[in-house]
Nucleic acid binder design. Structure first.
Lengths: 198, 198
DNA sequence: TTATTTTTGTAGTGCCCATTACAAAACCAT
DNA sequence: ATGGTTTTGTAATGGGCACTACAAAAATAA
């Protein structure tokens, strides 16, 4: 079942570039979302026919899962790094939100693929795949926050997740990166105040 | 063309209650969103057959528009009241966000129907209908904010709209009303600080 | 009663969707 | 060459969708 490309496999060679195809798919999923993007859109963009698509990716849902994973690995925020133990929590959160603002607004301003995907729509399975990644993100941030301020973890988590959702939404609304950054800055400042209070 | 019910119209009388049908439709659209809700779902919930549905509402899209309008009128935030001229801006924004937190979390926690609908999905027309209402909301808040602090209007608007989106998203994620309220409170405090600075 | 109007239920319509059967084509190994 | 393997292109297939044709039913108006 290995899909590694190193294999100089025996049969007829693939007529399209796998990495470019994944790039295309990622861009389209990010822009349109799972439901609004048809397999025909994907095959047209990649330049292949349906049988090649299904042979290469299994299904629309499987490709989405692969693309989500890819997105999380390539464009994900370094949560552990931002919330490292030797960094004050307020500063760590500020880094986190700042990175998010940069990532969400960068490229084509499509926001966060995980947050937007987890919001769901028609296809429940697609939503769950994104939700799973969002839950993992939540857990990573939560454990980082708990290191510094376990008794305020719930408050911080609620505010951080809401801010991330707001940033993603604002990015999709077309806000420029610097305006997103300003939102992140304001949010970070207040959280710093909240954390100073005993 | 009057669809008022006062008319003791001539033909066969309607076998379902219009107001209850709109309630059902509103609840379903709010819960599932436009794309994931089929006409069959609607007719089943109302207890009618497709021809009655189309005779009464015109189309799925038209019903959605009517329900959106209804939502905005019945459950919308009193923006003009919250941002009245004789109220300090910081307090007005706090009222606005507080009302939003209460509304989004109340009921079944489906967030804001306008914000969620404007996020779009498969049907572009449905998205535009919600987007139109969201733009009107934006304009109302903007003119209220401009009354007090025109030079900071952009910053305030960005932050307020992002916070509203974050609150709506958090509500859909199941946050309790008091946790939503806490998010709104924190956001309001920071905005108060930002407004104090020259 | 008879005519007119509107809603109702039955049973479809065509469209777009994700997905696949099938055989020809293009590569490797022998 | 020959056989084995995988991808390719053509052309479907079934399912769900929004929507509708049609005639019977239920009311009012004359």
């Amino acid at each position: 079942m290995g899909t590694t490309k190193i294999n100089k496999s025996r049969g007829r060679p693939r007529a399209f570039d796998m990495e470019q195809a994944l790039d295309k798919a990622q861009a389209l999923f990010a822009e349109k979302g799972y439901d609004a993007l048809s397999v025909a859109d994907l095959t047209d963009a990649i330049g292949i026919n349906p049988p090649s698509f299904y042979s290469a990716f299994g299904s629309k849902s499987a490709l989405y899962g692969q693309v989500l994973q890819r997105y999380a690995e390539l464009e994900g925020i370094d949560i552990v790094g931002a919330l490292a133990a030797d960094v004050p929590l307020a500063e760590g959160v500020a880094r986190l939100l700042g990175e998010a603002a940069a990532n969400y607004g960068g490229g084509n301003g499509t926001g966060c693929m995980v947050i937007e995907g987890a919001r769901g729509g028609v296809d429940a399975q697609a939503c769950q795949q994104a939700r799973r990644l969002l839950d993992m993100t939540y857990d990573a941030v939560h454990s980082g926050v708990s290191l510094h301020a376990p008794e305020k973890a719930e408050m911080v988590m609620d505010y951080v997740m809401a801010t991330l959702a707001g940033l993603s939404s604002s990015a999709r609304n077309g806000l420029s990166p610097d305006r997103l950054q300003r939102i992140a800055t304001i949010a970070s400042r207040q959280l710093a105040h909240e954390l100073e209070e005993k």
